[in-house]
């Protein structure tokens, strides 16, 4: 399931890749991951809730998951033969009480 090595494509959330010109568009690519909490981290976050502020364990968890969603999107684009993704958007939703879905989508393009 895990990709053998990290795929690196050029990403941007504007309509073009700045400094390059778009040759052809290959359609919408998506990547998503659903993450549940880690019980140990949850207990620590509960303790942190006494004072409030940043919950570092969750920040790390979500950053990791979002990177994985990006990786999946890039794998999708790579399989179509794209070398860049433009107009990348992120969305987060609560799918269940203990889990949230991190979703990203963009348009796969070939650039020069």
């Amino acid at each position: 399931m895990e990709p053998p090595q990290a795929i690196s494509l050029m990403l941007s959330n504007v309509e073009t890749i700045p400094g390059h010109s778009v040759v052809s568009s290959l359609g919408l690519v998506t990547g998503s991951t659903v993450r549940a909490k880690h019980i140990g981290k949850d207990i620590f976050a509960g303790l942190k809730n006494i004072v409030g502020g940043e919950l570092k364990a969750y920040t790390e968890l979500l950053n990791e998951s979002r990177n994985e969603a990006l990786q999946r999107m890039m794998a999708d684009a790579n399989s179509r033969g794209a070398n860049a993704i433009v107009n990348v958007r992120f969305a987060t939703s609560n799918v269940a009480a203990g889990a949230s879905e991190l979703f990203c989508y963009g348009t796969a393009v070939v650039i020069q």
Partner: peptide, 25 residues
């Protein structure tokens, strides 16, 4: 999305960062 900046750019990179915050109990 600044068109003028995009024209003179050499390369670009997607930046993303997130933070989880909560109020105290």
């Amino acid at each position: 999305s600044n068109k003028m900046t995009s024209l003179t750019a050499q390369s670009s990179v997607l930046l993303h960062t997130s933070i989880v915050v909560g109020p105290s109990m």
